[in-house]
Computed example of a mutant assay.
Amino acid sequence: MLAGIVADAVLGDPRRGHPVALFGRAAAALERRVYGDARPTGVGYVALCVGPVALLGVAVTGVGNRVGNPLLRGAVSAVATWAVLGGTTLGREGVAMAEFLEADDLAGARGRLSHLCGRDPSPLGSAELARATVESIAENTSDAVVAPLFWGAVAGVPGLLAYRAVNTLDAMVGHRNARYERFGWAAARLDDVANFVPARITGLLTVLCAPLAGGSVRQAAGVLRRDGHRHPSPNAGRCEAAFAGALDVTLGGTNVYGDRVEHRPEMGDGPKPSVGDIRRSVRLARAVGLAAAGLAVLAASRRARGRSRCLPRW
């Protein structure tokens, strides 16, 4: 797992042939074949997508255990960890947005925003682009870093792969619109369950790391406790509220997604994010990711030692 974390830090995501992108294309092809405007159809779709991925993780782990080669088992865990992590790419996208806005290149920033979230960038000015970036970094610190590490520590390679499949499906079909309100229900709810604990870990780690971004632990904790439950998402609000408190900004407001408009409660006590807050949010996200990596490696090593003590000695 540690080797996979280092690989993500050094390499990031490849431009072509990323395993998650390949899964996404396969899931999109399956959707075209089985789509139906009903919850049971969506449940079956999720099972057909996530089940084989989880079974692949179980099979690969089983082969590694039967072979008995620790280097092979380690290599499998490292590749799986690298494939599901997105922290380095998240940070790079945040820095890219900061550079566009620092250069007053609104066209470039609007074109880049789709790498972080699905909001309509066309009407957004510099301040709203900064807010969208900070909110996306906060939420994706959980989705792309803390959550996969959590499930890797809890369930090994099957946990890593299954979580990334669930989260990818949520990004694809877990939308509240005419097409996916019922078909995407299962993907959205399963993602909520998978992220329930990781989002709260992200909130707590953000509070503890607040001084590294020039913030206050006390203030971040206060905003998290007061505002974390106000977001329409049961998980994203914990991350965004903690970031709002740690950065001393106010997040939330009106977001436009194509023809859909969402009015989200405001979280935090400071001003709206400015361009300068983007780099601070990236620094905070990296600190949270590093702390989560340390905890995950420690938990995984303890789990492995416990498993080895339970094995029969011949």
Rank of each mutant, 00 (worst) to 15 (best):
A3V: 14
A7D: 03
G12R: 10
G17D: 06
H18K: 10
V20N: 09
V20P: 03
A21E: 14
A29T: 11
D37A: 14
C49E: 06
V50G: 02
V50E: 04
G51Q: 13
P52Q: 04
L55H: 12
A59E: 06
T61Y: 02
T61E: 09
G64D: 08
G64Q: 13
G68F: 04
P70T: 10
R73V: 10
G74V: 03
A75D: 00
V76K: 06
V79C: 07
A80I: 07
W82D: 00
L85Q: 06
G87D: 04
T88C: 07
T88Q: 13
T89S: 12
T89I: 04
G91N: 05
R92F: 01
V95Y: 11
A96G: 03
M97H: 02
A98T: 03
F100D: 05
L101V: 02
A103K: 15
D105Q: 09
L106A: 00
L106M: 04
A109N: 07
R110M: 01
R112W: 13
S114G: 10
L116Y: 07
C117F: 04
G118H: 13
P123W: 08
P123M: 08
T133F: 01
S136D: 05
S136T: 07
I137T: 01
E139Q: 09
N140V: 02
D143L: 08
V145H: 08
V146S: 07
L149Q: 07
L149G: 01
L149K: 05
W151T: 09
G152L: 10
V154Y: 11
A155I: 12
L160C: 05
L160N: 09
A165E: 05
V166G: 02
T168F: 06
L169T: 07
V173F: 12
R176T: 00
R176Q: 11
N177D: 12
A178V: 12
Y180S: 02
E181K: 11
F183T: 03
D191G: 03
P198H: 10
A199N: 03
I201E: 03
T202R: 06
L204R: 15
L204H: 13
V207S: 03
C209V: 12
P211Y: 10
L212Q: 13
L212W: 15
G215Y: 07
V217G: 00
R218Q: 11
R218G: 00
R218Y: 02
Q219S: 14
A220Y: 13
R225A: 12
R226H: 12
D227P: 06
H229P: 00
P232E: 10
P232W: 13
N235M: 04
N235V: 05
G237A: 05
R238W: 14
R238K: 09
E240C: 04
E240L: 05
F243N: 08
G245H: 07
A246Q: 09
D248A: 14
V249E: 04
L251C: 02
G252Q: 07
G252I: 05
Y257W: 08
G258S: 06
E262G: 00
P265A: 08
P273D: 03
G276E: 05
R279K: 13
R279D: 05
R280H: 11
V282H: 06
R283V: 08
A285T: 06
V288A: 06
G289R: 11
L290W: 15
A291V: 15
A293M: 10
G294V: 05
G294D: 04
A296H: 08
A300K: 08
R302A: 14
R305A: 14
R305C: 02
R305Y: 04
G306W: 07
G306I: 03
R309V: 11
L311C: 10
W314Q: 11
